[in-house]
Simulated scan of single mutants.
Amino acid sequence: MERAHHEAKEALRAYALKTLGFDLFGVAPAEPLEGQRHLAAWLAMGFHGEMAYMARTATLRGNPDALLPGARSVICVACAYHDPPDGPLPSGHVRVARYARRRDYHKVIRKKLLKLGEHLVGLFPEAQFRIVVDSGPLLEKEVAQRAGLGWIGKNTCLINRRLGSELLLGELITTVALPPDSPETDHCGSCTACLAACPTEALRGPYQLDARRCISYLTIEHKSAFDADHPPQLSGYLFGCDLCQTCCPWNRHAPLQVNPHLPTRAHLATLSVSELAGLDAEAWAKLAEGSPLRRLTYERLRRNLGALDSTAKQE
């Protein structure tokens, strides 16, 4: 039985990497996660800001069995998006986070995980599975670390020794007991580059993110209006932020590798402020269509542009 499950796992690995095109694959046991305590403390400090869904789903996130009763294993996968380094931001333009300059990864990864699940059922007809991609209530970075894909760095991103941290994650929770991979250990060492690079001091300390100060949170998740007299410092970002990743030595030394199923849309790297300001809601929806940018409503687009303009004038 043990040998059969090991062979099945390696068959799944080959199918995931070679046929489906994932860049990383690993298996973790579907056991309660230690990060549940960290999450509870993080929520108690209010670091989640307006993300009320984090509190509502907190009890689910640390227990894969709560998402799929009888869960025994979690198959973890990742797609890389490590583009060449960004150059200086042209005057009159704004940036979009590097992960958002491509197709919506949720749909791409979910579709591939469905095929992986069907392949699993072909090996184990009694298997049940559930797909989770980012928005699902699971501490996915901790599960990925348990599966050996990388470790949770001081910037709270998952970092892989070969590919860096520009990774998009997905999970397949299953009732099949597959042999687990060895967990990855922490390799941040004494480096604090990410803490120094954050202009808003959202990283209150190593491994501790106050989302309320985070540019990514402010531009995407924060739904309220900004204080007109004291708009947040967005450092030229319209949507998301890369600063705590692009400074990371593991990314600087990682090979350029963009998953072919998530090709870069070069026109989204920087966008003209004047052109964005001239868009109506329909034109913005067309520009954002099919990419993670669609999460940014037209109202929040105008809000973000207003904050960028206000801080630019102050400078």
Results as ranks from 00 to 15, higher is better:
residue 2 E to R: 01
residue 13 R to H: 10
residue 15 Y to R: 11
residue 17 L to R: 08
residue 17 L to S: 09
residue 18 K to P: 10
residue 19 T to N: 13
residue 20 L to Q: 01
residue 21 G to S: 10
residue 23 D to Y: 01
residue 29 P to V: 11
residue 30 A to H: 03
residue 30 A to I: 01
residue 31 E to Y: 12
residue 37 R to N: 13
residue 38 H to W: 09
residue 42 W to P: 05
residue 51 M to A: 04
residue 59 T to L: 14
residue 60 L to I: 13
residue 62 G to E: 04
residue 66 A to T: 04
residue 73 S to Q: 11
residue 74 V to G: 10
residue 77 V to Y: 00
residue 77 V to G: 00
residue 85 P to V: 14
residue 90 P to L: 11
residue 90 P to E: 06
residue 92 G to R: 01
residue 94 V to A: 07
residue 94 V to C: 10
residue 94 V to N: 06
residue 98 R to W: 04
residue 100 A to R: 14
residue 102 R to S: 14
residue 102 R to K: 08
residue 110 R to Q: 03
residue 113 L to R: 02
residue 113 L to W: 01
residue 114 L to A: 12
residue 118 E to I: 12
residue 127 A to H: 02
residue 130 R to C: 03
residue 145 Q to S: 14
residue 147 A to W: 01
residue 151 W to M: 10
residue 151 W to A: 09
residue 152 I to S: 15
residue 155 N to A: 06
residue 158 L to Q: 06
residue 167 L to V: 02
residue 167 L to D: 04
residue 173 I to C: 06
residue 174 T to W: 03
residue 174 T to V: 03
residue 187 H to I: 02
residue 196 A to R: 14
residue 199 P to C: 02
residue 200 T to E: 04
residue 201 E to A: 07
residue 209 L to Q: 10
residue 229 D to G: 12
residue 229 D to Q: 13
residue 230 H to N: 07
residue 231 P to H: 00
residue 231 P to C: 00
residue 233 Q to H: 08
residue 233 Q to L: 07
residue 245 Q to W: 09
residue 250 W to K: 09
residue 252 R to S: 15
residue 260 P to L: 07
residue 263 P to S: 09
residue 265 R to Q: 05
residue 267 H to Q: 14
residue 267 H to N: 12
residue 269 A to S: 00
residue 270 T to R: 15
residue 283 A to I: 15
residue 283 A to R: 15
residue 285 A to R: 15
residue 288 A to F: 08
residue 294 R to E: 12
residue 305 L to E: 13
residue 307 A to E: 03
residue 308 L to G: 04
residue 310 S to Y: 04
residue 314 Q to M: 13
residue 314 Q to D: 13
